[in-house]
Nucleic acid binder design. Structure first.
Lengths: 238, 238
DNA sequence: GAGTGGTCTAGACCACCTC
DNA sequence: AGGTGGTCTAGACCACTCG
């Protein structure tokens, strides 16, 4: 919370969420915000860019920063979010069950994709997620053991990301994700309540640390009727 | 092509794509780039931020701008992309068929979501997309007639976005998307080659112009075995 | 300690919108 | 014409990495 522009951004988000501005209003001009927060214009602009990236405002040249209506969708999850963060947000009854937690030496394919040494050990972690009494999601993780040495059943049941970021002090930076639909496997049938569904939505992601090393490959398999993905996309310049 | 930082960004992308830098290399330092492009550091930083946003580099404090490996996925389509742009990129045989193009006065639900006047007319446009001989995607669009007055069968078959941006001079800015899986409808069965599939992947999007008005609602229905979505997500600060 | 990126400043000129 | 955001400059100090 020390970066000035992050502080200003958070302050403005709070104001918007508390209803100080409603959809269609314009925020105070950049010039006014400079005076209000006693800072330079470029710093205000960084703060406003954060707001724009997160879908709170849209800047219009000559007019101002227009506040957008949010809540058109249930939860705005574009970006990287851990399962625990999501579950907390939704406020639903959630239970995680660990089915497998072991170090494997095979999985050459994953090892190559992560770009780690040939002899590196990998954690293999299989968890199911039960929401409101139904096992709906199957998460299969492969994690570099040389970077994340100690994973216990307990951390796997709680929040892996919390452990990695807060306890190990590693910074998770970005992920490449792919979403496809696939036929169910025997494993899906065994570990999920499929209710007759013959296909699952599969999200494959490679997760990278701030130093650009990939440390995790995750395959998250969702029962299709309970899957939802929300995206906020800006058109990029040519 | 006049913004200096966009020009620099494009130049650097070209260099990376041509193999001047490979994955793991660092770009010249910001200081060196300042000298090379004869500009200030903040301008260089804007260019590098563009590269980072598009997944070309990852900046590491104290080290430099590290070039990431691309092509781990087939096509990087995060963000807003028109169907025509996508089809061109993939270089596949694509045919668009217009099934319905009319102005409707009902659809109060869509009208409310777009936030347009009660008496506004809406275009209703239904198109199927045939790829490599199979009708795989069904696009249902609702478009504000007061903003986009003339849509012909020909523009609907070619590129709607080209017409809107180049000919009308409107700037498409951002979209909110939702991805879910749903059971097929009679309409899907009639207009698509479903090959026995009982579900489709549905992408619903609201598309906004640069002045923050929503002008289009699209429901894009994909046969699940041919659906793929790629996302590049940065972890946002708290 | 030298080099890197991250933040911040105080100006400047421009393009666009609205009155 | 006056206000808005978009771009750009030329500095400054800081936190971090690495030899």
């Amino acid at each position: 919370m020390k970066n000035k522009y992050v502080v200003i951004s958070n302050e403005l988000v709070k104001n918007i969420q508390q209803g100080a501005f409603s959809a269609g209003d314009t925020l105070p001009s950049e010039h006014e915000l400079c005076a209000q927060f006693e800072t330079s214009r470029e710093t205000i602009r960084k703060a406003l860019n954060l707001l724009a990236q997160n879908g709170y405002i849209q800047k219009v040249r000559g007019k101002g920063s227009v506040v957008l209506e949010r809540n058109k969708f249930k939860f705005p999850v574009s970006g990287l979010t851990s399962f625990k963060e999501l579950a907390d947000q939704m406020g639903q009854e959630v239970k995680t069950r660990v089915h497998e937690l072991a170090i494997v030496k095979q999985a050459a394919h994953v090892r190559r994709q992560l770009g780690c040494p040939e002899d590196a050990k990998l954690w293999k972690l299989i968890r199911s997620r039960e929401i409101d009494g139904e096992r709906i999601i199957l998460d299969k993780d492969y994690i570099r053991e040389d970077l994340i040495p100690d994973i216990t059943k307990e951390t796997a049941e709680q929040s892996l990301y919390y452990y990695i970021e807060e306890e190990l002090g590693l910074e998770i930076s970005f992920a490449k994700k792919e979403i496809v639909v696939e036929d169910v496997t025997d494993e899906d049938r065994e570990l999920l309540d499929l209710k007759g569904h013959q296909q699952v939505v599969v999200i494959r992601s490679y997760v990278y640390l701030a130093d650009t090393t990939a440390f995790q490959f995750t395959e998250s398999r969702h029962r299709p009727d309970k899957f939802q993905f929300v995206d906020f996309a800006r058109r990029t310049k040519a």
